[in-house]
């Protein structure tokens, strides 16, 4: 795999032009996370743009072994995000796809390979970007209650995201953050794995929801919507009554809407 250069920090004039990679799951299921990301990035002094030609990062194809389809989608994303200082996604998984896998995927492509490497160097997960690049140390948000943070596998192992979300979340006034046992274990989502091997995926997520529930949180937060939908879906089915949200919603103080998988008003 070619090495990924670390792109230089802010531009000379001090503003960072950020292309927000919304991600397909946020687009489809949780627009609030997109707006929360915009709010957080702007607050951190970034100029945010959202290229209209973006769809998905191509992971479903890549992980199914459909390499040429994944390559085509990767080229589309590389083109859509040309020219930004940074490309930020509210997901460790999609950011990891851009940061870690595009260079590998397009390594044999003389034209697109180098562009993919350049994009990879500028691609970051939202919360780590806020802390590591923008130097954000606090947010203006409040939440009264106990939260448990779920480490997603890609954030943790592909994007080096571990302390940054904890740092940001503990800055929320009124919030008590609790560590979850076996935090490094997968929630069992795995994209289409969750449907193709449903019983295994369901069994894995039961262990995760048990671990999360064991610290008695009011809310589970995380940085990847895939995991969160999986966890929320399991918790809702089991009737645990624990709310699940993307961490960006909490950090941006945008929690008016119902939590993930929760009823909009009392279910009849």
């Amino acid at each position: 795999m070619p090495s990924i250069p670390d792109t230089a920090d802010p531009r000379r004039d001090g503003t960072r032009r950020v292309g927000l990679f919304v991600t397909c799951l946020v687009d489809l299921f949780r627009p609030t996370v997109g707006f929360a990301a915009v709010k957080l990035l702007k607050h951190a002094g970034c100029v945010v743009e959202i290229p209209a030609t973006q769809t998905c990062c191509g992971q479903p194809a890549y992980n199914s072994g459909a390499r040429s389809e994944a390559q085509a989608i990767a080229r589309q994303v590389v083109a859509a995000f040309d020219g930004f200082d940074w490309v930020v996604a509210p997901s460790g998984s999609c950011a990891g796809m851009l940061h870690r896998h595009y260079p590998d995927l397009l390594s044999d492509d003389a034209e697109w390979g180098p562009r993919a490497v350049a994009l990879a160097g500028r691609a970051r997960e939202l919360m780590s970007f806020l802390v590591d690049v923008c130097g954000v140390t606090s947010v203006e948000a409040s939440f009264r209650g106990i939260a448990a943070y779920h480490d997603s596998c890609s954030s943790l192992r592909e994007m080096g995201v571990r302390d940054q979300p904890r740092e940001l979340l503990t800055g929320i006034s009124g919030l008590e953050l609790r560590e979850v046992p076996e935090a490094e274990a997968c929630c069992g989502f795995g994209g289409s794995f969750s449907v193709k091997y449903g019983p295994i995926s369901t069994d894995i997520v039961s262990r995760k929801t048990d671990a999360l529930a064991s610290v008695k949180p009011d809310m589970v937060v995380g940085g990847d919507l895939g995991c969160l939908m999986n966890i929320a879906g399991k918790m809702r089915r089991d009737g645990t009554g624990i709310a699940v949200r993307h961490a960006a919603e909490l950090l941006a103080d945008m929690t008016e809407d119902a939590a993930i998988g929760a009823p909009e008003r009392a279910e009849v």
Partner: peptide, 18 residues
């Protein structure tokens, strides 16, 4: 069914972000 056999599937919030 692989998903919904053991879990609920969270519904979208309303409209797409785009």
């Amino acid at each position: 069914r692989g998903w919904t056999g053991g879990r609920d599937f969270p519904a979208p919030q309303g409209e797409t972000f785009m």
